[in-house]
Amino acid sequence: MSSFASPLFRFGIIADPQYAAIPPHQAMDRHYASSLAKVAEAIEVFNGWELSFVMTLGDVIDRSFSSFDDILPVYDKLRHEALFLLGNHDFSVSPGHLSEVAARLGLPSPYYSFSRHGWRFIVLDGNEVSTFAPPEGHPHRALAAEMLAALQAKGAANAHRWNAALSDAQFAWLADEIASAAAAGEQVIVMNHYPVHPPCEHGMWDSERIVTLLAAQPHVVAYLNGHDHAGNYGKAGACHFVNFKGVVDTEKENAFAIVEVHADRIEIHGFGREDSRTLVY
C-alpha cells in the first residue's frame, strides 16, 4: 500500500551552476555561461510540481561578485521558495566582497536550519575553515592552512585548497540541531556543499567526525551535497549520502532532481544526467 501512497512532500535540488560570463573550460567540460539557460530550464520543470522549496547546493557562481547579478534574477521565475547554501566558488570574489556573499544569496546566516512537514533540514557552511572564505587575517584562515599542511603531510586524497572544514563551534551546533530534532520527533536531512562519504578527493577535511556523528543517529536519514561534479552515493549507519552532479558540466545536458519524501523512503527523480535513486529508511 505505502509504495503507491503520495509523498509527504517534495523539494527540488540544483548543484553547482558555477555561472560566469566566460568561455568554456573544454578540458574539464565546464560551460559556465550555459548555466543561465540550464537553471532556467530546471525552474520551468520545478514550476510544474508542488514543491516545498528548491535548494541550490552551492557554487551558484564560478567567479566574480557581479556574476550573482546575472544568475540570481533567473530564480525570480521560480514559484517556490529558493534556498541556497555556500560553496567554495561562491567566494571566488574580490576580498572586499567576501563578507557579503551569504547576504547576497539571502541566507539568514552562513549555516542555518528549518523545519518542514515534521522534518528538520540542517544546512551547513562547509567553507567556514578554509583558505579562501574567511576574511584576510581571520584565525580560521590560519587554522585552515595548518589543517591542509597536516593532511598534505599524510598524503591525504582530500588535501586540496578547494576543500575545507567546519569550525568546532559549527560542529557542536550540528550535534545540537540533531539532538533537538530527535527531541521534537523530527527526521533529519543534512545539506552541505561538500561530500563527506564515501571518502574522495573532494571531501571535507573533517569528514570523519561528521560521518561518525551522522551514522550514529537513526533519525538522520540523508546527507545531500554537490562539489564533486561526477556525483556519488554511499551509506554509513542508517544515513544515505548523495552527491548530486554539477549543472556546469557538459555543453547541452542538464542535471537536477526532484526529491520525494515518503513515510518509508526517499525517491530521487533525476533529470538530465542526474541519477534516480530510492533511499529506504
Rank of each mutant, 00 (worst) to 15 (best):
K252R: 13
T131P: 09
A15V: 02
R120Y: 04
P135L: 14
P135H: 02
V39F: 05
H138Y: 02
E44R: 14
A222D: 08
L57I: 09
V188N: 04
P73A: 01
D206H: 08
Q18V: 13
I178K: 01
P195E: 08
P139E: 01
S66G: 06
S167Y: 05
N47E: 11
A169C: 01
L98D: 01
L224W: 06
A82E: 12
R277A: 10
A156R: 13
V39Q: 03
E136Y: 11
H138F: 00
F132W: 15
L83E: 11
L105G: 02
A153H: 08
E128V: 04
V39P: 04
R273F: 10
M191R: 09
I71F: 04
H31Q: 02
H140P: 00
Q187I: 00
D70Q: 13
S180C: 04
V280T: 13
Y281T: 10
H160E: 14
P73Q: 10
L72P: 08
Y194K: 09
P17L: 06
E146F: 01
A169I: 07
M191K: 11
E260M: 00
A102H: 04
A263Q: 08
S34Q: 15
F171D: 11
H193M: 04
E41G: 14
R104G: 11
I268G: 02
P110T: 06
E136W: 07
G87E: 10
V242T: 14
D69I: 00
F244E: 01
A179Y: 03
